[in-house]
């Protein structure tokens, strides 16, 4: 689920007397960030968060306290996001349109036009990591919707390819193409932002 932060609010109190103001204050931003990593449009993210809180209020008796309250909320939001993905119309299942950005990275015979550089990153350096994560988030926002959805479900949520193909209504071949394009765009975007340091 990815959210293991301890919450400051006493869980049993929430179950007994839910306070709307407290929920939004405590969990609103966590839910919004979860949605924002997967859905580009801000107002859609806000709607998904609202739907999540309303669903949580309606079904609060179902929260048995086996997990953090925030984890339970994220679980609801996760389904809302999947429903949103499913609702989006896809008019092609066999052939994906060409990705001109990715195509432009290679020559006609498939050689790199601009060689990838060797990145010099120290994963232990938390300052660099924070900078990297911010840059990655900005790069993800620039991905085409279909690539971001595929990348979020497979890589960030760790779903298996069958589940993702079903949700996005695409073939596994197209899923692999979307992921390949997403990764190439993200690495190029990060490199364009100066991530990785000097060339090697």
């Amino acid at each position: 689920m990815g959210v293991n932060q301890p919450v400051r609010v006493d869980e049993p109190n929430i179950r007994q007397s839910p306070s709307a103001e407290l929920w939004v204050e405590e969990y609103g931003d966590i839910l919004f960030r979860y949605a924002k990593l997967r859905v580009k449009d801000r107002s859609t993210c806000e709607e998904l968060v609202q739907e999540t809180f309303l669903a949580a209020l309606k079904g609060k008796e179902n929260f048995q306290g086996q997990c953090e309250f925030s984890t339970w909320l994220v679980g609801i939001l996760k389904h809302k996001v999947l429903d949103y993905f499913r609702r989006q119309q896809r008019d092609q299942t066999d052939t994906l349109p060409e990705d001109s950005v990715v195509e432009a990275m290679f020559s006609r015979i498939g050689k790199w036009k601009t060689l990838p550089r060797r990145w010099h990153i120290d994963p232990q350096d938390s300052a660099i990591e924070s900078e990297l994560l911010s840059a990655l988030h900005r790069c993800m926002e620039a991905l085409p919707e279909s690539q971001r959805q595929a990348f979020a479900l497979m890589v960030m949520d760790g779903q298996n390819s069958e589940q993702v193909c079903k949700t996005l209504q695409i073939s596994s071949t197209n899923l692999y193409v979307l992921l390949y394009r997403a990764r190439l765009r993200l690495r190029a975007c990060l490199e364009g932002k100066g991530i990785g340091g000097a060339s090697g």
Binding site: D29, R33, E46, P123, L136, L186
Partner: peptide
């Protein structure tokens, strides 16, 4: 590295790490 960082980004949503400015209006 991109995959690894993306997973770290998800783990950081509780603390806003990497998702700058992503707060409800």
């Amino acid at each position: 590295a991109v995959d690894l960082l993306a997973r770290k980004l998800v783990q950081g949503i509780g603390s806003s790490a990497g998702v700058n400015g992503a707060t409800l209006s």
